[in-house]
Nucleic acid binder design. Structure first.
Lengths: 256, 256
DNA sequence: CGTCAACAAAATTTCGAAGCTCTGGAAATT
DNA sequence: AATTTCCAGAGCTTCGAAATTTTGTTGACG
């Protein structure tokens, strides 16, 4: 495991790894997160685990209910619709500011990030590329576009929303790696941004997000419904299956 | 302590209480958060404390550095300026949607929240009103304005930013309780919102935030600089004072 | 006299066990 | 037969001590 992301404490490492497993849909929405299985799966004790899960609760990827433990945050069409709307608004705002304020260094970073992303897409035509790597590059590309906005908080909020959005995308869409239209959209966004055509660039980004959202929602019924509130942490992590649990569902929603 | 906010676990209770102490500036920016003092101050063990502090890290009110413990998030003029800008953008967006979508129930809630806030201001002319109560009502009022926006995530983000903003306001401004101009601004915002004059209402809200931000920044040098990276948890919680700590400051910033 | 290394003290992080709450099912009551 | 109460098992939460890491100090060396 790379030590780039994983901080210096076991708790921070567990946080990163569980977050990654939720984003990659190895842990499905509604899955109960029991401690014994998690201990075995991630090889850490209770304290770091609780700490990691607590952080994920505030991040919105996990829910905590009273004395009844943790679950992967549930997923719904209403939720992804909301996330998509808010992300569009916030990210376009940041993009606008970024284009207006960006200097030469920013332009260079955008070009570089775009190039690195494309490299993967091209290589993928020859040999299969690790999905995880593409996700990282894709995230870096979108971040690069906004980097010059000048607002730490805007970037932080976009980051939160990107986590949420990506979870839904990866839950619903098989893989965006080989998507030709996606690459074309990226190219056009870069072109408009470098030409400082704010209105066009922002519109293209907006369409890009809308396009992705449409794909997510179209595929929704095919993927998301089965075993929504499933119970099996262990199952999720090694392929076995268990019974689903019926419960009166004490208004789960999110913990805020 | 009311059991409304404090959840059902000790960890959740500690989270609420520490959060409240940071927002009320009982715990100053940069203050080291050592465990022994905190254990005594809040009467809980290590596990719930760590969990609470972990959640506060993600909330942006506390920073964590490797194996060197936790601190109250530092404060700076750049930071409050950024927070103010982002809050203005996000909150105005939510307000706009709220006015457009709000129904009768929303109007009634706005009027009620405004009335409850004013009640306190008037009572304050007779006997001193608890600052904590005013803060809660003030928050509820602003929330009521946005409640009809229809977006859970927008409200969540506004809530995050409000925490940050309020910390700076209470750190810098003595008390907004008896502020006559503030009350007038609230009144005008309500009037415009009820008349569904979106442009006017949004502009007034924008000015309201800008006004508060100006006060914060004007008072900045008088309050915020002294003992910025102070060391004393215990001191902060009972009034004593200790030496300041000089350190090479391994790029603190925020933990994201 | 300043710099560096080793040591000792303090603080944070982690582990494993004990306490408490919740869940599910069986027995008793209506 | 349906509802309620009680009990046992499972699981979550919390505590206190052990293990690591950091920090401050002292002494040796250049």
């Amino acid at each position: 495991m790379n030590d780039t992301e994983m901080g210096r404490t076991l708790a921070a490492a567990a946080f990163s790894r569980i977050r990654a497993d939720i984003l990659s849909s190895k842990l499905l929405p509604g899955t109960r997160l029991r401690f014994e299985p998690l201990k075995k799966a991630y090889g850490v004790g209770l304290s770091p685990l609780r700490e990691a899960l607590s952080r994920l609760v505030v991040s919105g990827l996990v829910t905590a209910e009273g004395q009844r433990g943790f679950r992967v945050a549930p997923a719904s069409i209403e939720d992804i619709q909301d996330i998509s709307d808010v992300r569009t608004n916030v990210e376009c705002l940041a993009f606008r500011q970024s284009i207006e304020r960006g200097d030469d260094q920013w332009q260079a970073d955008v070009v570089a990030a775009h190039y690195r992303l494309n490299l993967l897409v091209e290589r993928n035509a020859v040999e299969p590329v690790d999905e995880e790597v593409w996700e990282a590059r894709h995230r870096e590309f979108h971040l690069a576009l906004l980097q010059a906005c000048g607002s730490r908080w805007l970037l932080h909020i976009v980051s939160l929303l990107t986590d949420q959005f990506d979870r839904y995308r990866r839950l619903s869409v098989e893989s965006s790696l080989s998507g030709k239209p996606v690459s074309l959209e990226h190219q056009r966004i870069v072109d408009a941004a470098l030409k400082r055509d704010v209105e066009l660039a922002v519109r293209l980004l907006k369409d890009h997000i809308a396009h992705a959202t449409r794909l997510i929602i179209e595929n929704w019924h095919a993927v998301a419904k089965p075993r929504q509130r499933g119970d099996a942490t262990h199952a999720a992590l090694n392929g076995a299956t268990r019974r689903a649990v019926k419960r009166k569902s004490r208004s789960p929603a999110r913990g805020w």
